[in-house]
């Protein structure tokens, strides 16, 4: 397992290095060079030269790349062109909201999707199976934006059961530890804050969970149907084991292999949906930040965003690979 992990980590660094090269090339290829984005249009040639020198753009290209890499590693993405604040700070302010929302959505998707998919498989052909399958079809068709708006109108505005916007009720005092409000509330013992944060999370998280939930229900159902027909499940049955043991140790442990892969892929794709959901619920995550950076061609901000997202993808991939190694002994390096 250790060798497997080290190998994965090495592969991962290579991937990140490749990505940094790509980004660097992109940065260099910006129309007229990055200094044009930073200078007023009527800048003089001296100003231009001075800025190029300041940015190190007169150095040999490999020095520039090394310099770029050094800054990236120190999380120094420069300052946002629109706000003037360091990009790293901007991201650090907003990412936790998106992470919290994504995690909550995934929790719902996994917590509901796997049991539901299992039941659908076990009662194949029943009304429950039918409902789960058609419901998951529906889940993948409804646009997230529409679903988010519907949930908001019905449960927040009409019924008034849940808050409409933001991460906490106005005027709530809270202590920032991780930036994940629910977690912070639990850590600091401010349970009322944690609960308030949960209430604010419910609707956006449900909206965001629709697609992963639908996918997980179907993949679980298919995976369980596959595994239930395997000879080793019959062997487990022939041992007279209790149904709960057969379900956990023999069916689900094998059925989890494809499910784990899908969960990893879904986590990555959640960010796209998060941008939309956040805008409906004014959730204050990276959604609005990215939108603004794109329209204003705020390259440092975009670069920082892309790098952070890339690191997320890579880390998620690593986690999936590692969990795969844990779940499936055949994947681990043979002794």
């Amino acid at each position: 397992m250790l060798r497997y992990t080290v190998k994965r980590l090495l592969q991962l660094s290579v991937a990140l290095l490749g990505l940094s090269l790509l980004l660097f090339a992109w940065f260099k290829a910006l129309p007229g060079g990055p200094e044009n984005q930073l200078l007023p249009e009527n800048a003089t040639a001296q100003q231009r030269e001075a800025l190029r020198a300041a940015l190190g753009l007169d150095e040999p290209i490999w020095v520039q790349y090394a310099d770029f890499l050094g800054r990236v590693v120190r999380l120094d993405f420069g300052s946002s062109l629109s706000s003037g604040r360091p990009v790293a700070t901007e991201l650090a302010d907003r990412l936790p909201a998106t992470i919290e929302l994504s995690l909550a959505a995934m929790l719902i998707a996994v917590g509901v999707g796997i049991p539901l998919g299992y039941l659908a498989a076990k009662r194949r052909g029943s009304w429950l199976d039918f409902a789960a399958v058609s419901g998951s079809l529906l889940g993948t068709c409804i646009p997230i934006f529409f679903l988010a708006a519907m949930l908001k109108v019905v449960f927040a505005q009409e019924l008034g059961w849940l808050p409409t916007t933001f991460r906490l009720s106005a005027g709530t005092e809270y202590t920032d530890v991780t930036g994940l409000r629910v977690l912070d509330g639990l850590i600091t013992g401010e349970f009322d804050v944690a609960w308030d944060a949960v209430l604010h999370l419910v609707l956006p998280a449900i909206a965001l969970s629709s697609i992963p939930l639908a996918v997980i229900v179907r993949i679980t159902r298919a995976s369980v149907l596959d595994v239930v027909g395997e000879d080793y499940v019959r062997t487990a049955d022939a041992k007279g084991l209790k149904p709960s043991v057969i379900r956990g140790r023999h069916v689900m442990r094998n059925a989890m292999l494809p499910i784990a892969t899908i969960i990893g892929l879904l986590l990555g794709s959640l960010f796209a949906g998060a941008v939309l959901t956040e805008s409906v619920f004014s959730f204050g995550g990276i959604g609005s930040f990215v939108y603004q950076a794109t329209t204003e061609r705020d390259y440092p901000a975009l670069m920082g965003f892309i790098l952070v997202i890339a690191v997320f993808y890579v880390v998620i991939n690593l986690l999936v690979d590692l969990s795969y190694g844990l779940l499936d002994p055949r994947v681990r390096v043979r002794k």
Binding site: Y232, R234, L241, R253, P329, R330
Partner: peptide
């Protein structure tokens, strides 16, 4: 009674054992 009073050995030993559980556990569970 199954696994205790009467037990069975199957034809294909590879597919009849759970690939992700150590064989020790597959014995101790019974």
């Amino acid at each position: 009674r199954r696994g205790k009073d009467l037990a069975m050995v199957f034809q294909d030993p590879l597919s009849s054992l759970n690939p992700v559980v150590p064989i020790g556990r597959q014995i101790t569970e019974v």
